[in-house]
Design a protein around this nucleic acid. Structure first.
Lengths: 220, 220
DNA sequence: ATATATTTTTAGACTTGTCTAAATTATAGC
DNA sequence: GCTATAATTTAGACAAGTCTAAAAATATAT
């Protein structure tokens, strides 16, 4: 359907659109794709011709419905393959991204849907990001860094920001994993450190650690 | 490591080498790759530069050790993915080839080896072809068409040549599948039809059917 | 043994996706 | 509102992989 490059651009632009408020700029795309702005200009012209995005010279781009649908199909594949790699092949969270970048380009609706079933129709990937369904519907949830919480707030761990081996070991040693419920007891305003209750034990987390853990708030 | 095209050429040349006795010709490669002879010439020059094959103008090519090893790595991936698709995702034999053509190009030794373990280190793919191990060792076995057997020979079904839906249905209706033991009772010389015993039942198979079933002889 | 047919290679062109360098447009400071 | 700077686009080039058409080498037939 679309070339490898086209798919990568669509995905990058989709992610940038999620963060940004306005149109996505040429430079932003270039930086994310590790390429030159002139290459981006060439490519977005092609994508505009195919009605995957709207583009006004010097004014940035935004995906059309068709472009968004296509991006979500790729993201669905990426995240399902990540689940497969972690759940079935015992890879660690942080090892799967580059592999999924390759696997996401395999062309076959049938394959993705069977994979989805084989994995038990997971809702979230190993990083805690939601997996779009085959219609392109995606559950958005408020993803925050643990470090952004205040005292007395509760949250569920849904992933980590950057996952070094050491950091993952640290987490498992302290019984923190995806799905763990975390209660913030105290938030030290000056250092940004947190006192957090995990199950029955109370932990002291530095700002660096707290800002490397993604959570979603539990309403109280 | 190598480009998608390079990998496909290596695989095609490997398969042609298995059949042919002498060097593989430019035209043979072109036909198998569904491309033009001039394109083949261009590519084999590149592969020769990379020491993946030896090439003398107008004299055809043959893979070097390095080329063979590389081809076997790709074939290993292809066949393991086929097993995955059939065993885990419930695809039928004949649906998996095109998908495996895509999946075989995923780059990661780690992934292949984990997939191998996940699948229980299978020896053969769903078409009955042997799967090279991670060192590139491949068990060769005598693959014949059922139609080539003579009266009183016994063989194990290891695959089919071309698998239409109808044909696969025909087989399963008659309890023939991979691993089925087949005894040739009679071989009609003129029409090429066979009388075959499968378990307790005796079947009459036309030449067309018999020449679409791969078997390996059982020594008696 | 030589003419003819076939195979293979070369030459030159095209597409995709990238780049550098130069030109153009937008933006921010004053 | 003008000017300096930053962002973006254009122009032209390049590499990979393919193609067509023509030339060269090899194989075949009588």
């Amino acid at each position: 359907m679309y070339s490898l490059s086209e798919e990568n651009y669509l995905k990058a632009i989709y992610h940038l659109e999620q963060q940004a408020t306005a149109e996505v700029s040429t430079n932003a795309i270039a930086e994310r794709m590790q390429t030159k702005a002139s290459s981006v200009t060439d490519m977005i012209k092609k994508l505009a011709d195919k009605d995957l995005l709207t583009y006004k010279k010097y004014k940035g781009v935004s995906l059309t419905d068709s472009g968004t649908r296509t991006a979500l199909r790729i993201i669905r594949k990426h995240r399902l393959w990540e689940v497969f790699l972690v759940e079935k092949l015992q890879f660690k969270w942080h090892q799967v991204h580059d592999l999924a970048e390759q696997l996401e380009h395999i062309q076959s609706q049938e394959l993705v849907n069977r994979l989805d079933d084989f994995l038990g129709n997971p809702q979230y990937d190993p990083h805690g990001d939601p997996i779009p369904d085959s219609e392109g519907n995606i559950k958005r949830r408020d993803k925050k860094l643990l470090g952004q919480l205040e005292a007395n707030q509760s949250a569920t761990c849904i992933g980590v920001k950057s996952a070094s081996d050491d950091f993952l070991k640290y987490l498992s040693k302290n019984n923190i994993g995806i799905g763990s419920k975390l209660n913030v007891q105290e938030a030290e305003p000056f250092t940004g450190a947190l006192t957090v209750k995990v199950g029955e034990t109370t932990l002291f987390l530095t700002k660096e650690i707290a800002n490397n853990i993604y959570v979603t708030l539990i309403k109280s």
